[in-house]
Each structure stands twice: as structure tokens, then as C-alpha cells.
Design a protein around this nucleic acid. Structure first.
Lengths: 344, 344
DNA sequence: CGAAAGGAAAGAATCGTTTAGGTTCTTTCC
DNA sequence: GGAAAGAACCTAAACGATTCTTTCCTTTCG
């Protein structure tokens, strides 16, 4: 049926091994023979079988992508398309392919990862999230699979190659920006508490408060899985405090959109009544109302570097462990304003 | 290094072929032997090598997913995560894996598809979009690769298995809803003109106008790749007509969000000044302001059915060509209101 | 009691490449 | 002129499964 290396060999009057070497463009084959073989390939419409090659090679040229559980709303976050775009760019250049984890629950995903790794379907793996006590990461480490994490590993970060922003710093700067605008009552609206990114951003927020000698108040910290039942309640609780905040640091743009919505419903306007700064700077932040001041974390770069480094690690097993920090920048739009004392 | 079927065979004192049959749970092997072999597998920590199996089998249990070019803004559309979630669900249940197309430009993607197909990396393919004169689709047809299209093929739709909504009908109903509310000047804001879904929704819109004997005006049709330069201009042009529309049918929620933003900037309020109905009913439509009245097209189902049918097609080559229509429903929220004559 | 039948497992070929190790033939150089 | 060297290919054994064919035992029954 399909035309194999043997057919080409026959046609060109050489041995299969010669054809193989022509494909690899080995210097051990003369130009004349190469030409002859290549013609035969053209004539027969030959295409190498990747599976067979993988078997002989013990390398698949495939990278596994592990997403958070799709049962999670997080899946809808525009972060993922964008990070995948970066990864895609890097792997395409190097002739690798991408395989996606499937499964809804964490258990299903774990099982899926074990399958793709043990089944030797992939040469390495990128974890698209980082959370505390992740079984999957533990597994990858134990099995010594080449992998890189996007985000900062919870523990032993120095032993795991990862690509991340300096989220502590980013959050600190974002908060300081609000402080510079005169705000003193600044609240933090975080996402999933188990994600390291949430923890880091919270720490940055705290640091900024501390070095400005502003008080850190527990009732100013809200963790909402936005859009869940209770998300709106949390926001309303926050704003009905005796001393409500005048500014918000929100964990990401999608959440900020939800917050914006809740505020509008409550009759509060941004930035007149409340300033908001958020993170990620996805498309959404431009088309929200008002356009969001947001920390651009270079999502594309995160993906690109993760993939590039994973491939290095795959192709050179002695590659050292690396920690790559992608720069961020605060993009100012229209969701922040100077603090104005209420005119009573 | 890795433990193979032979190691297991040796350990269990049987032939490799027997081990293989135990894996496949063949009835030709006695229960006693099965138990013995399974124990050996446990003890050695054996995991079947998928690549080897694929080679022998001529089947990879992998499905290729072809996304639109990621250079495109379309990539950011929440449609994709959701449709992938549906696909993921269906393939996970049947032990298939997913491989993603990579590449930014159309040419790169085309090349990538050829690679994954000819390289026998995948058993079949799902096209996540449908546009006019698509080279990739033509290629898949020519090569007789099992594939299904999400959306309606441009030509010869009856010869290609596809999963789609009845977009003509959906758009017609959406438009009729506006008409019922008393609107007579209804404009259409479409997306990429080459996408079949855009064409279908435009046709549905036209039909609704026609059967209500409303005039179809060319200057009421705007195709904007929203957020591109000129997107806002198009909207502004539309609204500065002598007889501006009082309602808008917008091709999808993300675009509607952009439109909402432009309108707000112009000082127009929705739904007081202008009603909007859009499509897809993604998460966004709930958290936009106002929450959007949107046609729910069951994105998850689209993906799920596409995958399910592709697998059927792969496993049974005589499976007939199918056209699967996923139902839609209009979800009413707060972006539409009755037409009120301007009080002059 | 011996041949036939049938169940259970072994043997060996195959899938399409890669690659280590040979073989053949030409060239070089003392 | 003949040994040594080197270029250019070829042979054949992997890679880790699957599966067709064969063999070896039991069991059954005339």
C-alpha cells in the first residue's frame, strides 16, 4: 500500500540503509547517489513514517502539554490560547509536534499523563500551571521525565527547570502604582488559592503595603473563583466594610472583568469610585470598559521559552536546571485614577 | 533499560505472543496464564510501548486538531478552549490522544498537516473551522484521510462528514427576536467574511428581514475583524448614517464585547439606545456589561460529536458520511429591549 | 486402545526505520 | 606491484509490539 523506504531503495537501486542516510543527509553518501535517491522518492511520492522512525530512534519529537483540569473555569482563561501560541511557535521551528492532555478531573489527567509518558508517546512535557502539592509534578520528577513548568514550582524550585515571571515583584509594582496614586485602602482579589501565581502576587501586594507602612488587613483579602456562586457576595462583602477599599489589585484580567461587572451592578464606577489594576494583559483588557490597567506578563514569551528550553533539555540530557524569568511591564489604561477623598 | 514484552514473557515463562494476548485480553488464553502474566507485569512495572504498538497495528490512536492560523485573532476566541473541552471529553473516554497543529501562517499549518498525515502520526483529523476554498480540506479529501469538519464545508457539504449548528436558522431566529421587539432598522456585524459561519449567519439575517418585509440595506452590513484598525471606524460609520440602526446582530460574543465598548465610548447605552444579540454564549456573555443576549450553540457538544464521529469513522471505514446538527437556543439576558421611537 | 478434535501456548514473520559493522572497489604510496 | 587506506554502499540486527501459523498436549469417543 504505502510506499516505504524499501520501495525507494529498489527504485533507486540502492540499499534501504542508503535511503535512510539520504533522508538524514549523511555526508557518507555521494551527491550523485543522493540525487538519484531523491528522484526516486519524488517519483514514488515517498513520505517517511514517523512511527517507525520513532521506534528505531527512541524519540518521538512530540511534546506533551498538560493543562489544568478542564472542569475548571480556568480553562477558559485566554492565558492558555496565548501560551500555546508561544509554545507552538517554538516547537514548529524545531519540527516537534504537540500532544494535549485530556481528561476533566485531576485524576483523569494524572492517568493520562502516566499513559503518555510510560507509553513513550512524548519526549518531554510542559506543565502549563503550577499549584501546591501537585501529584503530576511529583510523578514527573520521580520518573525523571524531561519537563518544564510554566510558573514557579511550589517546592524545590531550584531543582526544576521553570519559566515564570517575577510575580512578587510585578504585584508589588502594581500595588505601588496604586499607592503612588494616593490610595491607602487597597484590597486584593485573588483567584485559586492553590496556584503559586496567586500566592506570589499576594506576597508582592503585602510587601508593597509593608514598605509603604500601610496596614495589612485580612478583611481586604478576597479569594474568589470568580463567577462561582459566592463570587459576587465576596465582592459585596468587601465593599460594605466600614472602611471599604478605594482600589483593587485583581489576580487576572478575566477576573477583573467579572469584578467590573459586579461593581457596575452595585452602581460603582471605575475608576471614579474605585481603581483597579490587574494582570496578564490579554486581549480582554483592551476591550473591557474601561480598558484595564494591567501587568503585561508576556504570555507568548512564557510559552516560547518553556518549549525552547524543554527541547534543549530533551536533546542534551546534561543541560543544567534553569530558572527563566520573563520580564513584565505595567500597561496603563483607564481603570486607575488618583485617590480623591470623598466630598462630604 | 525499559522493560519490554519479552522481559515479561521470560519472567512468566511464556512466549511474547502470549503476553501480547494477555494485554489484549484475548479469550484464547487461559485465566491461569493471564493471572501469571499479569503478576509478572506488575512485578516488573511493565507499560506497553505505544509507538511499537502503533507500528505493528498501523493505528496510532491519535487525532489531529487543526486550528486556524494563530496569527489570527480568532485564536483568542473562547470558542476554541470550549470546543477542545468537548473533543477532549470524547477522545479521553475512548483512549485516544490529541495532537495539535502548529504554525502561525496558513502555509505553515498546511505543511504541518501534511506532515502529521503522511508521517502517519494521526489516524484522523478534526478541522476546527470552515472557510471558503480551504487548501487543507481539499488535501484531506484528496488523500482520503478520515476527517470531520466543525462547521459547514463550503462546497460538497454532503460529501463531507461535519458537525454544525443550523446557523442560518439561528441567525434568523435571533433577528426575528429583535423584530418582535419592534426593531426595524437592524444591522449585521459580521466577522471574517471567508468563514462559512459568517456567511450562514448573514443569510439567516437576510431571510428574517425578507419575511418581515423589512428592507435589506447594504450599508447595514459591516464586516469587521474587530479590534483591527478600522474596526471602530466601521462601527462609527454605521451609527452615523442618516437612519442609524436601532439593533445589531453581532457574529459572536467576543466581537459583541468590542462593539459594546465602542458604543460606550460613543455615549450610546445598551439596550436603551441600541439592542444587541450575539452568538456562542461563552462565559464572556455572562460577565459583560450588560450581560449579552446570545445564541447558545452548544460548543461543547459540537466538539464532542465531532470527535465521537471521527472515531467511529476511523474504526469503521464504511461508516457513511454524516451531517450532524447541534441544536441552539436563544439565551435572553439584558442587551435587548423594545424599540422605542425617539422622543423628539 | 488409538485416532481425531480441540484448547493453549510457542514460533516466527512483520510493521518501517535506524545504525553498527562489513564488504567491495578504487586510489595512494613506498 | 602490492599492501594499506579510504570512499561508498550493503547486510542484517535492532526497536517493541502484533498476529498468522504451527506445535504440543489433553480429552473424547468409536
Amino acid at each position: 500500500m504505502t510506499v516505504t523506504i524499501k520501495d525507494v531503495a529498489k527504485r533507486a537501486n540502492v540499499a534501504p540503509s542508503t535511503v535512510s542516510r539520504v533522508i538524514a543527509d549523511s555526508p557518507r553518501i555521494s551527491e550523485k547517489t543522493k540525487k538519484k535517491v531523491r528522484e526516486a522518492m519524488k517519483e514514488l511520492g515517498y513520505h517517511p513514517n514517523f512511527i517507525a522512525r520513532s521506534l528505531a530512534n527512541k524519540s518521538t519529537q512530540v511534546i506533551g502539554l498538560i493543562m489544568p483540569s478542564s472542569a475548571d473555569k480556568a480553562f477558559q482563561n485566554p492565558f492558555f490560547p496565548e501560551v500555546i501560541r508561544g509554545i507552538s511557535k517554538a516547537v514548529h521551528d524545531r519540527q516537534y509536534a504537540l500532544q494535549l492532555s485530556t481528561g476533566e478531573t485531576e485524576a483523569e489527567i494524572y492517568e493520562g499523563v502516566v499513559h503518555m509518558v510510560q507509553g513513550k508517546r512524548v519526549d518531554g512535557v510542559i506543565l502549563l500551571y503550577s499549584r501546591a502539592n501537585d501529584k503530576i509534578m511529583a510523578y514527573l520528577q520521580k520518573e525523571d521525565v524531561p519537563f518544564v513548568v510554566i510558573g514557579k514550582p511550589h517546592k524545590k524550585a531550584e531543582q526544576i527547570t521553570h519559566v515564570d515571571n517575577d510575580n512578587v515583584r510585578a504585584a508589588r509594582e502594581a500595588t505601588e502604582y496604586l499607592i503612588e496614586l494616593g490610595h491607602e485602602r487597597i484590597a486584593f482579589v485573588g483567584g485559586n488559592v492553590n496556584l503559586i501565581v496567586t500566592m506570589d502576587r499576594l506576597r508582592g501586594y503585602e510587601k508593597a503595603l509593608k514598605s509603604a507602612s500601610l496596614s495589612y488587613r485580612k478583611d481586604y483579602i478576597v479569594h474568589e473563583e470568580f463567577l462561582k456562586e459566592g463570587g459576587q457576595e465576596a465582592m459585596k462583602g468587601l465593599l460594605s466594610l466600614k472602611e471599604p477599599p478605594t482600589a483593587l489589585v485583581v489576580a487576572d484580567d478575566l477576573m477583573a472583568l467579572g469584578v467590573l461587572n459586579t461593581l457596575a451592578e452595585m452602581g460603582l464606577s471605575v475608576p471614579a469610585d474605585l481603581s483597579i489594576v490587574s494582570f496578564n494583559n490579554v486581549l480582554l483588557s483592551e476591550i473591557s470598559r474601561p480598558p484595564l490597567t494591567s501587568v503585561d506578563i508576556n504570555i507568548f514569551q512564557l510559552g516560547f521559552e518553556a518549549a525552547r528550553n524543554l527541547i534543549q533539555q530533551i536533546e542534551n540530557p546534561n543541560e543544567p536546571i534553569k530558572r527563566i524569568i520573563i520580564p513584565h511591564t505595567l500597561v496603563k489604561r483607564f481603570s486607575c485614577d488618583y485617590y480623591k477623598a470623598p466630598s462630604e
